[in-house]
């Protein structure tokens, strides 16, 4: 990773290093799968309060890139949410205030 530095001598010997390309700051709050971490093995479709946390304001499923869950548990979440929608525990489309 070469950051070319343009060193120019300005007023006296105070050398002011100005980067041409801004240095990349790595933000590394690495996402983790909350189900693996908490050891949850089964996502129950019968308690909507827990499932509402995995759904956005319109009632749509949150994507993996935001929640960071692994593929296996994302499928279980999707199945549980669809089942609870079918059983009218959760709305299909909503402007539910989170």
């Amino acid at each position: 990773m070469s950051t070319n530095i343009d060193v120019n001598q300005k007023e006296g010997n105070q050398s002011e290093i100005r980067y041409l390309t801004p240095p990349p700051i790595e933000v590394s709050n690495s996402k983790y799968c909350r189900f693996k971490k908490l050891g949850i093995k089964y996502i129950d479709y019968k308690d909507p309060d827990f499932l509402l946390r995995l759904v956005n304001e319109q009632g749509k499923l949150l994507p993996r890139r935001i929640t960071g869950t692994s593929v296996k548990y994302q499928r279980k979440v999707a199945q549980a949410v669809k089942r609870s929608r079918h059983m009218a525990l959760m709305p299909y489309v909503a402007d539910l205030l989170k």
Binding site: K41, Y42, D44, Y45, R83, H86, M87, A88
Partner: peptide, 18 residues
């Protein structure tokens, strides 16, 4: 409205705990 679902071993353990 009705729904019938099969329970795998994790679901059985969960429902017992519940």
């Amino acid at each position: 409205r009705f729904g019938t679902f099969r329970q795998d071993k994790h679901a059985i353990a969960y429902s017992e705990k519940r």
